[in-house]
């Protein structure tokens, strides 16, 4: 009996201690950020600068992934979550069920770089159709050599490297290239570790791979960037190389995507969170390029800021269903009226 009493006493102690600190963390000026590992470097840079200027505010940031970030967001465990794809309908529904209102802020662009080895002499550009031919599920085991993709290319085995299925990059690439999210051949080297993909492609003459532009940018000496032709002339004719300009002006399509942050509306009423998000938007034009991503146009940032200040909740993309080929300025303007 004594033992049972003791055990229950300890349990009460532990749980009361937990409660106390939970109420404390709400009072203290701390901001919790989580979400996409792609957005994380930007949030990290902003948090670093923000903390330098506001010493009394503590920020903790994590990179659990877009989906896991939304799960924590819905559980009301975090204030801000980063996303490399817009919120899904199911996630939006869960938010509503839990009574969580959110503010959605596009913050940067990320280009997906399609790369080959430096020693690859034959690939000059690829069309979206050719990429689809390589990556679609039916290519498994059949499209295996370079000369099957375009006549005149060598009869050599093609070794593919791409994002692992847990990453938002995989979702986006398959949606943009194959046409359906998460539909992809399976006989390729898949990894969540982008540095692994970089060294895989760099060390293999007959390879082809894709990953975030930042990873190409840091490894330009080892990799060759492939220009992409989407065969639509209204957004730039012919093959287009991923560069800061082509990503921001919307000609590097369909492989550039917006990165977003979502803010819990309840949290945004706390001054430190509001200040942090405003700071985030204000500093994005300088900090985003520093982290290897592409900043939005100044006009887009103005629209984004107005959207945050007005406290508009909900997502821009739920009705659009996709971010492939979307021009942010137009979408932002259309919702403002």
């Amino acid at each position: 009996m004594k033992k049972i009493l003791l055990i229950s006493f300890v349990a009460v102690m532990i749980s009361s201690c937990g409660n106390k600190e939970n109420s404390e963390s709400v009072q203290s000026s701390s901001i919790k950020v989580d979400g996409s590992s792609t957005v994380f470097p930007i949030s990290e840079a902003v948090a670093e600068e923000f903390e330098n200027e506001n010493k009394d505010i503590k920020i903790t940031a994590n990179a659990s992934g877009t989906g896991a970030g939304f799960k924590k967001f819905i559980r009301n465990e975090i204030d801000v979550t980063g996303a490399s794809r817009p919120i899904k309908e199911s996630e939006d529904k869960d938010c509503k069920e839990k009574g969580i209102e959110y503010l959605e802020i596009p913050i940067a662009y990320d280009g997906l770089a399609v790369v080959v080895s430096k020693e690859n002499t034959w690939v000059d550009f690829l069309t979206v159709a050719e990429l689809k031919k390589i990556w679609e599920p039916s290519a498994k085991g059949t499209v295996t050599h370079w000369d099957q993709i375009r006549a005149g290319w060598p009869h050599e085995k093609i070794n593919l490297y791409g994002a692992g299925t847990e990453s938002g990059t995989f979702d986006y690439f398959t949606e943009a290239i194959v046409g359906e999210a998460r539909s992809c051949r399976t006989d390729y080297t898949a990894s969540e570790d982008d540095n692994g993909l970089v060294s895989g492609v760099a060390g293999d003459k007959h390879s082809l791979g894709y990953f975030g532009y930042a990873y190409f940018y840091e490894n330009q000496d080892k990799l060759k960037l492939v220009a992409i032709d989407d065969q639509k002339d209204d957004n730039g004719k012919g093959p287009i190389l991923a560069t800061t300009e082509t990503i921001v002006n919307g000609t590097y399509q369909p492989l550039s995507r917006p990165l977003l942050i979502y803010i819990n509306k309840q949290s945004s009423k706390r001054p430190e969170v509001a200040n942090f998000v405003n700071y985030y938007i204000d500093q994005a034009p300088t900090l985003v390029p520093e982290t290897g991503y592409v900043a939005l146009s100044p006009e887009a940032y103005k629209l984004v800021k107005a959207r945050f200040t007005s406290g508009t909740t909900g997502s821009l993309f739920l009705t659009l269903k996709t971010t492939v080929g979307v021009k942010l300025e137009e979408v932002l303007k259309s919702t403002q009226q």
């Binding site: 994380f40 670093e48 903390e51 503590k58 920020i59 903790t60 940031a61 994590n62 990179a63």
Partner: peptide, 9 residues
């Protein structure tokens, strides 16, 4: 359990 990736304190 969610130990932070970015934290300065």
């Amino acid at each position: 359990i969610g130990a932070a990736t970015y934290i300065t304190s």
